[in-house]
């Protein structure tokens, strides 16, 4: 009986604290392959190396990838391993060559929507999850204008930034800060809005 090969080419792709473990699929013609993923944090590997914990979403899974975001919940190196099964057959474990630490995640500038409500500058930021805070910089578009900075923690809802003066244009840029790993994303492109001028009362 042919021994089921272990999955190969394990790697982790991590962007904005979403971590995806991937591997090359095991092919057995006519069969559906299931995969089991397990993880081990630094504590387990140091104090209880025999202990592996089944992944939250991939015990088992069909596709050659696994979202391990809910499993990696500390900023320490994690060992990860995968094995394939079909019927009663189970492959050997294949372990990620280098432990994964979430502080290596790629941080991208967040998506934002800048609007105004009368003279009020309002921003809505994408919901990237509880790990994220947003550092919002906004300024009046004129030479030498002072840049105001605000830390915004609300996600997915319009947040008041500041009050604008009639007839002026204001610009906004934002970057994320991830407290768990102490890192920032690059700033987004600036977006600007113009405020309608206020109709001045007739001077007699």
């Amino acid at each position: 009986v042919a021994i089921l090969p272990a999955p190969q080419n394990l790697s982790v792709q991590s962007t904005n604290m979403k971590h995806l473990l991937m591997w090359s699929p095991v092919i057995v013609p006519g069969e559906i392959i299931y995969y089991f993923v397990e993880y081990q944090g630094e504590y387990e590997s140091l104090y209880m190396s025999h202990i592996w914990i089944p992944s939250s979403w991939c015990s088992p899974t069909e596709g050659p990838e696994c979202d391990i975001t809910d499993d990696v919940t500390a900023t320490v190196p994690y060992n990860l391993r995968v094995r394939a099964t079909v019927g009663a057959q189970t492959s050997a474990w294949s372990t990620l060559q280098h432990p994964f630490n979430r502080n290596s995640t790629v941080l991208t500038p967040p998506v934002m929507e800048v609007t105004k409500d009368g003279f009020h500058l309002v921003i809505k930021l994408e919901d990237l999850g509880p790990q994220f805070e947003f550092l919002v910089a906004y300024w009046r578009r004129e030479p030498g204008a002072k840049e105001h900075v605000k830390v915004v923690k609300s996600r997915g809802i319009p947040v008041h930034l500041g009050t604008m003066e009639p007839g002026a244009a204001y610009c906004v840029k934002v970057r994320t800060f991830v407290k768990a790993i102490g890192r920032h994303s690059p700033f987004s492109q600036a977006e600007c809005v113009k405020v309608q001028g206020e109709t001045l009362p007739l001077t007699l």
Binding site: G41, E42, Y43, E44, Y47, I51, S59, D70, T73, A74
Partner: peptide
Amino acid sequence: FKNYLDKAADSRIRKSFSTLANNFFV
């Protein structure tokens, strides 16, 4: 925490255990 995990069969507890243990470790 040590040796506790052997007895904690419930995966929800194992997962919580791992989060607490690794963050306490940090």
